[in-house]
Design a protein around this nucleic acid. Structure first.
Length: 423
RNA sequence: GUGGAUAUAGUUCAGCUGGUUAGAACGCCAGAUUGUGGCUCUGGAGGUCGUGGGUUCAAGUCCCACUAUCCACCCCA
């Protein structure tokens, strides 16, 4: 236990960190292009926020939250998703006094107590964006388009965009009733979990994967047929907007999303590279969340992207760039007598902006050279008796094996000309 | 929470029906006549065989429990 990360968590070793950093940079870049600004919210919140925001009957709140009491008896929960905390911050800091819409993005760890699986961890990370204050379908379009552009920048253009509308409060109730009536007649053919859902949350039956239920669902009433005029118009404009900005999508009536706060547009972006967890991005519009959390009526929309899943896809497709960790210089010294001379040069180079390294293991010159080529490093500076006497360092290009003599004073200039960097 | 598979060096694995000091490859470290890497050769370090019980003269090898990992269900990112 002592030497093992807790179940469902993991360490990102340097090589993996480099990949994450690259992806994060692409995400930040994309968000900036769309005018979204970064926000960072706490790792934990009052439990109440998630109960109220996500919904008491959702799986997340019912069985997946990391909830505990702190030393003064407050109920605290590690954030299971990113939207509710951002919504809370929006209200707390009265960001609605800014010119609307307020557009924010975040990169955050999330925590859910579940059995780990392919692309599923107990601590996982999300990229997300939220746009507050605009009821316009063009915001829905922008949110989806931002995700799509982000994936494209990473080289992923084959991902499927599935969209649906689950209506507003009013039309959803009508639909739920119609759905219940329909399914009630077929209840003998539904699986056990769907029978439970029939009472508690009938919408959830729509994405059941049980083959028998799937068959029944073929003729199920579709929510698009129950949308009110406003919701119908909204959805049509989302579709039109997506087409205008060149986002390919498909309408999928099965997309209902597991969080209670969604209204109108919901969407998922799916990859076939992931096993059972095929959703890499999920989001939609949530026009009531801010008000339910005690803020002014504020329509909003956003998405969350699972970073671990994204990395899995990029790795499967060979699209992940691993930046070279090659260093500029290794200073190899003959023996202890020349260490000080080398050390001075080492820090001179580092201060100038060259990455430089020197032996700290008491290795022989030969072993130092061996180590230098393993790091790896572009140039080895060799310092011994001759070099110190003449003031000229032996420089070896480890790629070609060629050697040069360079005045110690002009080492930076030499490097600058060779690798166009620093100074 | 449910089901299935797995658990041997840093890594990937071998170890047949239980039988002497648990192996290989790669990696790591050090040498190959003394101021230099990548190739080659030689040597070395490194394993409570997931943990705890049990069966047996004897268990990495059989049985049980626990833990962890992987996969799937549920649900989601």
């Amino acid at each position: 236990m002592l030497t093992k990360a807790p179940r469902g968590t993991r360490d990102l070793l340097p090589e993996e960190c480099a990949k994450w950093l690259y992806i994060e940079n692409v995400f930040r870049e994309t968000c900036t292009l769309f005018g979204y600004q970064e926000i960072r919210t706490p790792t934990f919140e009052h439990t109440e926020l998630f109960q109220r925001g996500i919904g008491e009957t959702t799986d997340i709140v019912e069985k997946e939250m990391y909830t505990f009491e702190d030393k003064s008896g407050r109920s605290i929960t590690l954030k299971p998703e990113g939207t509710a905390p951002v919504a809370r911050a929006y209200i707390e800091h009265k960001l609605y006094n800014n010119p609307l819409p307020v557009k924010l993005f975040y990169i955050t760890p999330c925590f859910r107590y579940e059995r780990p699986q392919a692309g599923r961890y107990r601590e996982f990370h999300q990229f997300g964006i939220e746009a507050f204050g605009s009821p316009s379908p063009l915001i829905d379009v922008e949110v989806i388009a931002l995700a799509v552009l982000f994936f494209e920048k990473l080289g992923l253009s084959q991902l499927e965009v599935h969209i649906n509308s689950i209506g507003c409060k009013a039309c959803r109730e009508d639909y739920k009733k119609a759905l219940k009536d329909f399914l009630f007649k077929k209840k003998d053919f539904l699986c056990d979990t769907c029978l439970l859902r029939l009472e508690r949350n009938p919408l959830r039956i729509l994405d059941c994967k049980n083959p028998n239920c799937q068959k029944i669902l073929e003729d199920v009433p579709k929510i698009v047929d129950y949308l009110c005029d406003d919701c119908r118009r909204h959805f049509a404009e989302v579709e039109k907007g997506l087409t205008t900005v060149g986002v390919k999508y498909q309408v999928n009536p099965g997309i209902v999303r597991g969080l209670d706060y969604y209204t109108k547009t919901v969407f998922e972006i799916i990859s076939e590279e992931l096993g059972a967890q095929s959703t890499v991005c999920g989001g939609g519009r949530y026009d009531n969340l801010i008000e339910e959390c005690g803020g002014p009526h504020t329509p909003a929309a956003g998405f969350g992207i699972g970073i671990e899943r994204l990395v899995l896809i990029l790795e499967a497709k060979g699209l992940i760039e691993i930046p070279s960790k090659e260093m500029d210089v290794f200073i190899a010294v003959m023996d202890e007598n020349y260490r000080e001379y080398g050390l001075q040069l080492l820090y001179r180079l580092r201060k100038t902006g060259f990455s430089a390294e020197m032996d700290n293991m008491g290795r022989s010159l030969k072993a130092q050279m061996k180590y230098a080529s393993k790091i790896p490093v572009k140039y080895a500076f060799i310092i011994g008796e001759d070099e110190v006497k003449s003031g000229k360092i032996t420089v070896k290009d480890l790629a070609t094996g060629e050697q040069d003599k360079v005045s110690c004073d002009e080492a930076e200039i030499y490097l600058k000309n060779k690798i166009r960097k620093g100074c």
